[in-house]
Amino acid sequence: MAEAKRARPVPTPETQHYWDGAKAGELRLQKCDACAKTYFPPRPFCPGCGSRKVSVVKASGKGKLYSYVIHHRPAPGFTPPYAIAVVELDEGPRLMTNIVECEQTPEALQLDMKLEVTFEKLDDDISLPLFKPAKG
């Protein structure tokens, strides 16, 4: 029997650029040309002002740990205990993620610790943005 894998996202037309970016090793956000708001999740208009004039921008990939839980129950593709985290990007938006290259303990996972993006390839089409403690 094949090992259970983590849930695989299925891109939609308005999110395709995000997943194309992840596949290319880039974290892509969107920025409003009218009001300059940087936002996530992907939409072809600004959720701040409603403008349809928006651009895809490459994010720095840097952020800090905003909050998390350490889940102790089983989930497909995970070995408990594992942290489910929310990272606050330097550009402002927050996203859910997992923290890798780090002990999954309250002692190791300190709120506001600096993080940087890394990518885990799930298959030929999907790479998933994850975060690890920033160097230096």
Binding site: R6, A7, V10, P41, Y68, V69, H71, R73, A85
Partner: peptide
């Protein structure tokens, strides 16, 4: 899997409400 939750939360191992609801508490 093509909803916002399916694309941007489920792949990170959220399952029951217990894995999601306490995320803000720390």
């Amino acid at each position: 899997p093509d909803s916002f939750n399916g694309q941007f939360e489920l792949p990170y191992g959220v399952t029951t409400p217990a894995s999601m609801f306490p995320i803000p508490v720390l």
